[in-house]
Design a binder for these strands. Structure first.
Lengths: 123, 123
DNA sequence: CGGAATCCCGGCTGATACTG
DNA sequence: CAGTATCAGCCGGGATTCCG
């Protein structure tokens, strides 16, 4: 018993519900968006930073590291001056691209089919 | 200026990157899992509560409400004693099912193809 | 350029108690 | 049964500073 003493009955849940695994990986405010940008092409760190307006370098680093740990993203360091680091999708990450595409298409259809009630919460 | 004074350049971002929309909707610790359970069949409140070990009723309610606001989930109240409330997917929610399925399948493949490094962080 | 190290902060999450 | 209300806390995001 490491840390399963509260609110976490991990095993059975993941057995029963396979999306749990996926949920764990793409949870994180920027991960889906990062993966999407990497699905287009390999990107450098600052390139990603520019593509994600509002994210700080610290956070970007963390999200990328976590994606690395989950073997979704590959980090290639070129020993140069100034340094260059390129991020790309691993094979596992690439296998996720169809889902990213679906999510993109769905997002577009979603915007068309409904004006978000959330925006008008004050009604 | 409501609350967009920091870290939120919403418009352009969503233009450029369609997954942002989707990200916003499925963000939330339990939403994907809730949607998945509802994709199987209509469920009652306590049924969902049992299916999601670890979630509290308060949180479950909130996540469901948010999914309702986003028009993903329909809430049907039966005027009975004791009360009965059933949750199901709206048409928009149903249009998301393929993605849920993909995520489920992907999650299974993922588990096979890699032993998560995260679990052994202490190495 | 691409981070690492810190600190801070808010919001979501979660527990508990109460209600119709 | 299906919530609401309230409060606590934690974690993850964010800003800033420093480094090779």
């Amino acid at each position: 018993m490491a840390r399963s003493w509260f609110s976490e009955p991990p095993e059975d849940q993941k057995e029963v519900c396979p999306v749990t695994e996926t949920q764990d990986i793409i949870a994180g405010k920027w991960k889906i968006i990062i993966l999407w940008h990497l699905s287009i092409q390999t990107r450098r760190f600052n390139e990603l930073h520019r593509l994600l307006p509002g994210i700080s370098k610290g956070i970007l680093t963390r999200q990328l590291r976590e994606l690395e740990e989950d073997q979704m993203v590959h980090r290639e360091v070129y020993k140069e001056v100034p340094p260059r680091v390129e991020y790309s999708l691993t094979p596992i990450g690439q296998s996720f691209i169809p889902i990213l595409d679906s999510m993109g298409e769905w997002g577009i259809k979603y915007k068309k089919s409904c004006k978000k009630a959330k925006a008008y919460t004050n009604l």
